[in-house]
Simulated assay, not measured.
Amino acid sequence: MSRISVRGLAVASATAVTAVGSVVGVASGSVAQNNDAEPTAADTTLLADLPAGQQAQVQTASLTQQADTAAIAADASAKKDAEEAARKAAAHTAIQKKAAAEQAAAKAAKEAKDRAETKAAAASRDDVRDASSFPVQTSYTIAQIQAMARQIVPAGQFQCFSNIVDHESSWNYRATNASSGAYGLVQALPASKMATAGADWQTNPATQIKWGLNYMNVRYGSPCDAWSYWQANGNY
């Protein structure tokens, strides 16, 4: 066996140091040193100088210490890896939750919009049905036509609707544009498009109002949106 210094091995274990110290003391005839004192260069005993049993104790103590050190390092590494894995998993979960929340919000917004549009369409259809109850006359005054419009057009949209009609026909349900052929209160072009609201579109202001309101809702979203467009462009 090679002559390995006991100092490098025995210091790793208190038990080994005690054993080595005892051996050294016996061999030299000196008094046993305090276990807490680190052996000096003069006290260094070579492993080969120890009895076989003591050599085994020193080697075992050293190997045990090395194993304990390796185990502690492995535990620390495993703990660090576990913490990193937990952090990544938490971040991934947070991203998934955020994406799910955004999808849910978008879906809810779309459903709300669809419900609003459905409600608006239903209200518009109800207005059309209500408008058909106006009695047919051979002629109508501006006041009568405006009264019809107030009953057909939603209150919050009436002023915008009125602004457009003021500019387009001055509330004359027989107004005709000589150059384009546009006709009626809202100056439909071609005029025959108003037939979708009623066959009497040429003589019944209520039919023209129904058609005009539906046109503004479908094309612009509302009479007020149509009025905003009119102000910017001079037409709608």
Score class of each variant (00 low, 15 high):
residue 57 Q to G: 10
residue 228 S to C: 03
residue 89 A to D: 06
residue 39 P to W: 14
residue 129 R to Y: 08
residue 120 A to W: 00
residue 35 N to I: 14
residue 135 P to F: 02
residue 161 F to Y: 07
residue 68 D to C: 02
residue 110 K to I: 02
residue 159 Q to G: 03
residue 115 R to C: 04
residue 178 A to T: 03
residue 98 K to E: 14
residue 28 S to C: 08
residue 28 S to G: 09
residue 235 N to A: 13
residue 198 G to A: 05
residue 9 L to E: 00
residue 113 K to Y: 05
residue 54 Q to W: 12
residue 129 R to H: 07
residue 214 N to W: 13
residue 30 S to Q: 09
residue 16 A to W: 00
residue 132 S to Y: 03
residue 174 R to L: 14
residue 134 F to T: 10
residue 131 A to V: 08
residue 188 A to Q: 09
residue 3 R to Y: 02
residue 86 A to W: 01
residue 181 G to L: 14
residue 45 T to R: 13
residue 224 C to T: 08
residue 162 S to W: 11
residue 51 P to Y: 06
residue 97 K to I: 15
residue 87 R to T: 07
residue 177 N to G: 06
residue 165 V to F: 01
residue 220 Y to A: 11
residue 84 E to L: 09
residue 95 I to N: 04
residue 94 A to E: 00
residue 222 S to W: 06
residue 128 V to P: 00
residue 150 R to C: 07
residue 223 P to H: 10
residue 178 A to N: 08
residue 56 A to F: 08
residue 192 S to I: 12
residue 57 Q to M: 13
residue 24 V to K: 06
residue 167 H to M: 09
residue 82 A to F: 02
residue 12 A to C: 01
residue 11 V to Y: 04
residue 161 F to N: 02
residue 52 A to K: 12
residue 148 M to N: 01
residue 90 A to E: 12
residue 30 S to E: 13
residue 23 V to F: 15
residue 120 A to E: 08
residue 213 L to K: 06
residue 83 E to L: 15
residue 206 A to K: 06
residue 210 K to P: 01
residue 135 P to R: 09
residue 154 P to H: 12
residue 141 T to C: 02
residue 169 S to H: 01
residue 162 S to R: 15
residue 19 A to S: 03
residue 69 T to V: 04
residue 33 Q to T: 09
residue 97 K to Y: 08
residue 208 Q to P: 00
residue 117 E to N: 15
residue 62 S to E: 14
residue 1 M to T: 01
residue 123 A to L: 11
residue 40 T to K: 07
residue 205 P to R: 14
residue 172 N to S: 12
residue 53 G to S: 12
residue 141 T to P: 00
residue 25 G to L: 07
residue 171 W to K: 02
residue 52 A to M: 10
residue 99 A to R: 13
residue 166 D to K: 13
residue 62 S to M: 13
residue 185 L to C: 06
residue 39 P to V: 09
residue 38 E to Q: 10
residue 223 P to E: 06
residue 235 N to L: 04
residue 128 V to H: 10
residue 110 K to A: 15
residue 48 A to P: 03
residue 181 G to S: 11
